[in-house]
Simulated scan of single mutants.
Amino acid sequence: MATLSYLPPVKPSAIALGTVYNHAISLAILGPVFGETYREAQRANSKEEFFKSKEAASAASAWGSSLVGSGVQTYAVGALINATGTLTYKGAAYLGSLVFLASAAPSFISQLATEKRPLDQVAVTVLARVAETVGLSVFLTWWGTRTNPFD
């Protein structure tokens, strides 16, 4: 039987609360998807008809993948906090900034330079991603991520 002992431990409550925090931020971005789903539900004649619709399947897929992604990202940031020994909010903000720059910044540069998306649309997405990375790392530092803080 394979063990996961090589994965850094992160306090389960930190993973749970961080997942809720991060998922809430993600849902702000997915709002238009759920808005269309709500309108489709109002137009449907029955629950069965709605649940068979494309919008319901799309919303369920977006919600589920966002929830799983939030959990994975929360664990990864918590493990980084533990691995680097980050104890201060300033250190957590730096760590979150590095995660943001490594994971999200390239796509925003592409959206502005190549895709020519409107600046306000990109700015809203940037703010949400900063909240998902910098905000998450500060939140997790506040809550605590170590399973045994005396180790």
Rank of each mutant, 00 (worst) to 15 (best):
R39Y: 13
F139W: 02
N82P: 02
K52Q: 14
F139A: 06
N148K: 10
Y38K: 08
N45L: 13
N82A: 15
F100T: 08
S58Q: 09
V124L: 11
T88G: 06
Y21C: 10
V122W: 05
S5D: 15
Q42H: 11
S5T: 12
I109N: 03
A14V: 02
A76L: 15
E49M: 06
S66L: 06
K90H: 08
G31W: 13
A62S: 14
N82C: 04
L4N: 08
A56I: 00
P32Y: 02
G91W: 02
L67Y: 08
L136T: 03
P106W: 05
A2C: 04
G64R: 08
Y6A: 14
N45I: 09
S13C: 03
Q42A: 11
R39E: 15
A92T: 05
K90Q: 12
A24G: 14
G135Q: 03
N22H: 12
E48D: 14
K116P: 04
S110Y: 15
F34Q: 05
E49T: 10
K11Y: 11
R129Q: 12
Y75P: 02
L87A: 14
S53F: 05
V134K: 00
S5N: 14
K11N: 08
L101D: 04
S103G: 14
A123M: 11
K52L: 14
A83R: 14
T84G: 09
A113P: 00
L140Q: 10
L95W: 02
P149H: 07
G69C: 07
T37Y: 00
E40M: 14
S97E: 05
Q121C: 00
W143A: 03
F150W: 13
T114N: 13
T145W: 01
L140P: 01
V130W: 03
E48T: 12
L95D: 03
D151T: 15
T141W: 05
T133Q: 10
G144H: 07
R117C: 05
S110I: 09
L4P: 00
G64P: 01
V68M: 13
Q111H: 11
A104W: 01
S66C: 06
A60Q: 08
A123G: 06
V126R: 06
A24K: 03
T74P: 02
